[in-house]
Amino acid sequence: MLTAIIMAGGSGERFWPLSTPEKPKQLLNIFSEKTMIRETVERILPIIPRENIFIATNELQATAVKEELKDIPEENIIIEPAFKDTAAAIGYSALIIEERFKSKLKRDEKIEIVVLASDHLIKRESEFRKIVKLGAKEATTNGVIITLGIKPNKPETGYGYIEVKEENKLILNNIYKVRRFREKPNLETAESYISSGKYLWNSGMFIFTTETIFKNFDVLMEEHAEIFQSIRKKLINNISGLELTNLVREDFKKFEKISIDFGIMEYSKNIRVIPVDIEWNDIGSFNALEEVFEKNSSGNVVRYCNIREIDSSDNIVIGDGITISLLGVKDLVIVKNGKNILVADKNRTQDIKKIIKKGEE
């Protein structure tokens, strides 16, 4: 039984001022007429029915998510009472899914979960769905956790990497044992990863059965496992929404704030990776727009505005229907949304969250 958890609790700070805590990146239609979370749902609908798709979000964004995804059952909108990172979020969501479907399983059937981000771009959608089904079969058959590793096309320093246990050349869509996960490298290290041919970008997409993920929690994250046991006792009578959120609020306060990467993926002995080429982009900053949209004759990316330009090139300009004039500027990100305007060096877009904190002082 294939299900999905779409992670939709992020604030999208690196896309400020377009993205706000109440309406973050996944709820914006930056790349098409549809929001990113809508595109994520539609990407998997051919293989996962709506009643099997769950959205993990928070109290601040829950109303907007429900409004955007009216076709997803409201009881499938999982509202976390506190941000405790992905280990708690994924485990909690898996508990709810297990409780929902365990009585409906056929003999020897397992609940398979694919964990997806709500704000990634995947152009080769048919290929992606094929890989998800392949990964789900492997996860069920061999009791392993599958992650999708993106075949790198450049020495990217903004992604984590997966090192593969394999002496021969990696073949797309094959399944390999993982040697270890690597943190975001410097440029020299990234170049060595690429030249070795044994490293893949960590996409943050995982596939596993509920049985396997909770076994890993029991072994590697005992404190989380104990809290899950407490929560499990409260998942009765199909309670959902804010009623459930309030019921587990005190339990959530006990979770250590830690990602599933640090808690499980880096230490588990049963991780497998599938190298894929699905034209994936995690849209981690405004700079990603240069990889998605065509540039004009001056090398500028222009969205939702008109520009007048003289001696200006390689800028990213986003407006809200206005005309923006550029004179002698290069390598800038210029964004206007309502009363907020951002002007940033393209090489500093990872620091946009510092501007937000400065405004809160």
Rank of each mutant, 00 (worst) to 15 (best):
L289Y: 11
I194S: 05
T147L: 10
K253L: 14
L342R: 02
S313A: 11
N281V: 05
G149N: 05
S325N: 13
G149P: 09
E266V: 12
E138H: 12
I122G: 06
K358I: 05
I271H: 04
L172M: 11
E42V: 03
I111M: 12
N340K: 13
S298M: 04
E226A: 11
I131M: 12
L247C: 07
P17K: 06
E99N: 15
I324Y: 10
G143T: 06
D331L: 01
G263Y: 03
M36P: 07
Y161M: 11
L170H: 08
V317G: 01
A62E: 05
E42S: 06
I97V: 09
I78Y: 03
S126T: 14
I47G: 11
S313N: 11
I113N: 06
N202F: 08
I239F: 03
E98G: 08
A117W: 13
L2R: 13
K346A: 09
P275D: 01
I322K: 12
I283K: 02
A62T: 03
R14P: 05
N246P: 02
F286T: 01
F286C: 03
W16A: 13
K102A: 08
N153T: 14
F15L: 07
N315M: 01
D251E: 15
A82H: 03
R303C: 10
E22T: 08
E243L: 10
E112D: 10
T210Q: 08
I97E: 08
I307C: 09
A136M: 09
E167H: 12
N174Y: 09
F54G: 03
I356R: 12
N29T: 01
I258W: 07
I318C: 04
R272C: 05
E243H: 05
Q26I: 07
K295E: 15
T323G: 00
K198R: 14
K346R: 15
Q229W: 03
G135S: 08
R129P: 15
T20G: 08
A88W: 05
D108F: 15
F208E: 04
E294T: 13
S195T: 15
E51Y: 09
F252D: 07
L95Q: 11
E13L: 06
K254G: 08
I175W: 01
N173C: 03
E138R: 14
I307G: 11
I55P: 07
Y199H: 15
E291H: 12
I231D: 12
R348H: 09
T245G: 06
G197W: 04
N315R: 02
N306A: 10
G9W: 00
A117S: 14
A88E: 05
K137W: 08
F15G: 02
A139Y: 02
T40D: 00
I207G: 07
L148A: 03
